[in-house]
Design a protein around this nucleic acid. Structure first.
Length: 422
RNA sequence: GUGGGUGUAGCUCAGUUGGUUAGAGCAUCUGACUGUGGCUCAGAGGGCCGCGGGUUCGAAUCCCGUCACUCACCCCA
């Protein structure tokens, strides 16, 4: 006890244990299945990159870069960072390996741990897992809609409902600067009325004033100019056609002109899928377009769009909906006596190579306690192998759910199980 | 980084105005005529009452500090 207290997982990092780990597995398998049908292929970038990669893509004065990165120097003195998100690595990989020479669009998905040094709270960890996907080389707005359709199918397949889809378009490098100045103009004489954080945002990132939750700020920005009114022609038409495609898919969504992004690389379409059942950290999926990033990383001018889904948050919703996926052994073999033990172990081994989950009893324990154990682990069938059975060549089977039992030949256990399983 | 809440058995929690060997339920293990689970019954193991200090004849209980966990802000998946 006192010795096991010496070591604990680090703050904000957790062990995923059964039965929860089965929900993780189910979530990952479902994503893989759905994404594959949409043409996404797996990609596995490393979890650490040179620090510069993140500061440049995510943005120098975002919170992630300013205070949340796991950054350290390696033995050669290079600054290395544990990835706080997946997109930067995938884009780097896309450029580094000249994946743009493959037919467009290229679609990739990944899943794995991300790291942000934050104060943990419900739905927020320092090591957390995301399933994400990126599409390169598709500028057309129906790709944005297709991505949401895919996400809808993914979440539906997991039987998650009660989620809402919010979309917005934050313009491009043509129209955003003008909008930014319009915002600054609007707030310039109202700065005193804003909260402390928003006063800071005014100089650092004025767009962020739009999603401040402080009541005073919500009131002040009522008449603030809207991004959607400042789109250039291309952005306006992109956003229009994106929405038309969403409607064509029969997807219900909300346009939320106040939604912004914490990462600097986004352009045009951004979206979020949120749940009311998750507390303050309510985003299950978030993503958007980043049409300039590939070029900024030294690749050809390539439009791109992607998203990331929070594993822990999805699993939390699955838990709330009562989903469970705890498997149990196909068979439990109770052993009584020396001879039976030698034979039983071989039988179990053979069944296991044929794909059955088989548990063995402790031959030194009483049959009673072996049966008790079989029940505890919810084995479907128990086979009792004792010296009596070895002599007669027959074993007794028992089905625990209804206590039915009977005799079969020692060599017929596989056929018996295969028959019951089919 | 800033606030609030909570720390008693593996888990969920009782613990009365400070007063003897700190309890329950669940879980674990064993047994109830010798080769049969679940239900029932009997029993067992398992607690520096988060840690350190203080007040007191006496602290799980009161005070201070500290650490951990947790929720929220910030921010975000």
């Amino acid at each position: 006890m006192s010795s096991s207290r010496e070591y604990k997982a680090l703050k904000g990092m957790q062990d995923v244990l059964p039965p929860n780990s089965y929900l993780w597995k189910k979530t990952e398998e479902t994503a893989e299945e759905i994404f594959t049908a949409y043409g996404y292929r797996p990609i596995r970038p490393p979890i650490a990159e040179t620090t510069d990669l993140f500061t440049r893509s995510i943005g120098e004065n975002t919170d992630i870069v300013e205070k949340e990165m796991y950054t350290f120097n390696d033995k050669a003195g290079r600054s290395v960072t544990l990835r706080p998100e997946g997109t930067a690595s995938v884009v780097r990989s896309y450029v580094e390996h000249h994946l743009y020479t493959l037919p467009s669009p290229q679609k990739y998905y990944y899943s794995g741990p991300m790291f942000r040094y934050e104060r943990p709270q419900s739905g927020r960890l320092r090591q957390f897992y995301q399933i994400g996907a990126e599409v390169f080389g598709a500028a057309y707005p129906w790709m944005d809609a297709e991505m949401l359709s895919m996400l809808r199918h993914f979440l539906e397949r997991l039987h998650l409902s009660d989620l809402s889809i919010e979309v917005n378009s934050i313009g491009c490098k043509q129209c955003r600067p003008a909008y930014k100045t319009a915002l600054l103009d609007f707030f310039s004489d109202k700065r005193v009325q804003l909260c402390v954080d928003c006063k800071r945002r005014y100089t650092v990132n004025p767009l962020r004033i739009l999603d401040c939750k402080v009541a005073g700020c919500t009131a002040v920005r009522k008449e603030a100019p809207r991004v959607t009114d400042h789109h250039c022609c291309d952005c306006e038409s992109h956003f229009e056609r994106f929405q038309a495609t969403l409607r064509n898919f029969g997807i219900t969504y909300n346009v939320n002109p106040e939604m912004v992004r914490g990462l600097d690389y986004y352009t045009r379409t951004i979206f979020e899928i949120t749940s009311k059942d998750l507390g303050a950290q309510n985003a299950v999926v978030a993503g958007g377009r980043y049409d300039d990033l590939v070029k900024e990383f030294g690749g050809p001018d390539t439009p791109a769009i992607g998203f990331a889904a929070g594993m822990e948050r999805i699993v939390e919703l699955l838990n709330r909906s009562g989903a469970s996926a705890l498997p149990s052994p196909d068979a439990f073999i109770s052993l009584l006596g020396e001879q039976a033990c030698r034979k039983g172990i071989l039988i179990a081994d053979d069944l296991r190579t044929k794909g059955f989950w088989v548990e063995l009893g402790d031959p030194e324990a009483s049959l009673k306690s072996q049966m008790r154990r079989a029940d505890k682990v919810s084995a479907r069938y128990v086979f009792v192998i004792g010296d009596k059975e070895i002599d007669s060549g027959n074993v007794q089977w028992k089905k625990l759910s209804d206590a039915s039992q009977g005799l079969i030949s020692l060599s017929g256990i596989y056929d018996f199980l295969a028959d019951k399983a089919g």
